[in-house]
Design a binder for these strands. Structure first.
Lengths: 213, 213
DNA sequence: CTTTGTATTAACAATTTTGTTAAACATTGT
DNA sequence: ACAATGTTTAACAAAATTGTTAATACAAAG
């Protein structure tokens, strides 16, 4: 009668499936993923997978939910920093965001693909983060305007800035497999390249917002 | 005995399938695409589809080939301009590239997804464009270095510059469905937003390469 | 030690999807 | 007219994939 009878074991099985599913969905997308393949990777029969998660759909939602909130969080927390100057907060935010994407390089493409193929499903999700985004944007824009008036930086629309930062940071990883074979030695050492790219992105944005004299 | 008996009709059928297939593959990817759906959209029986293209795979390759060469071409021609100064060539190239992506907004994601899911297949394709890229890069880098020595612009690695431009231009469209609902009125008018974004991308890169005094 | 709910397996069912085939149909050159 | 070749249809076959079920094992509680 105890639901948690064998909690360790159960968590193991369920967790094994979730881990395998995460990898399968992130690398192959919903359509390319196979429940049999997930079960095989997890080392369970595919009936077990259906026992725990009923349908492929439900298993997928579990993965999507965790990845989405992580993604949204990363983009927002990077710029909510404490009592630094706005310019330094932006500089630090770019780096933080870059590092997050570097540690979850498949996530952006996964999220983008998923939203494109089933946009209607994410209305609820959007509503949940909308207010947070609005307030972050308002604060950021206010600080930018204030700093601009003091001549510390260029006046710029915070949303444009946001898009530019995400573009530079995310595209690096999204297009990595596409560019790597074309760039010869330039991207051969991934770590070296990513460090240079990180610095380049920061430099690009810093110059964009630097006050013109 | 004439293979081209009813050439108009045949081209119509074959072309109808190709057009429908292009749309299906670009919007749903290989795994999400259904040959029955393609046939239905094209207004032919699904046996017809197999008659003309034998397999889903072969039909897909027809689409991929055309899209890939277009994509590669766009990235390369944008910067091969005539006798302008290098700075003006770059400025113009960003705009040209942006406009190309604007007219083919689904292509980058399609190409990236395809390369990620079957990288091994594109070795031949890469070899074909490798030499062109190498020569474009060499010329661009040489012109940049010369201009930098004359103090007309900042010295910068041409490949880094290339990646930044592609990031800014492509990400705008790749992430459009993701950002649009989050940005409120900002992206409501697509045309207005894209024009502003185009200008912003040019401005960002121009500031990046502007000579520091 | 029986009951009860959960975990597990193996076999199977249902559906979807791709691909084939044989026969009917059409067109054109001779 | 008719042979030859390409086109089209409808029905079918094969495979893959998701999902179900019935039987059984197991662990814990009473």
């Amino acid at each position: 009668m105890d639901k948690n009878t064998d909690n360790i074991e159960k968590q193991n099985k369920e967790q094994l499936i979730l881990t395998a599913a995460e990898h399968e969905f992130l690398t192959k997308g919903y359509d390319g993923a196979r429940t049999t393949s997930i079960a095989k990777t997890a080392g369970v029969t595919h009936a077990m997978l259906h026992y725990y998660f009923r349908t492929k759909e439900q298993l997928f939602e579990r993965i999507v939910d965790s990845k989405f909130s992580l993604m949204a969080q990363s983009m927002l927390t990077a710029f909510g920093n404490p009592n630094q100057s706005i310019v330094e907060r932006i500089r630090g935010g770019i780096g933080l965001h870059f590092d997050f994407v570097a540690q979850n390089p498949q996530m952006p493409l996964f999220v983008i693909n998923e939203i494109i193929s089933r946009p209607e499903r994410y209305d609820i999700l959007y509503n949940r983060v909308q207010s947070v985004i609005d307030s972050i944007y308002a604060n950021l824009q206010r600080d930018i305007d204030l700093a601009a008036e003091r001549g510390e930086m260029e006046r710029i629309d915070a949303r444009m800035l946001f898009i530019s930062i995400m573009s530079l940071n995310i595209f690096t990883f999204v297009a990595y497999p596409f560019m790597e074979p074309l760039m010869g030695d330039f991207m051969a050492n991934r770590k070296v390249f990513l460090e240079a790219r990180r610095a380049e992105n920061i430099e690009t944005i810093m110059r964009r917002i630097k006050a013109q004299q």
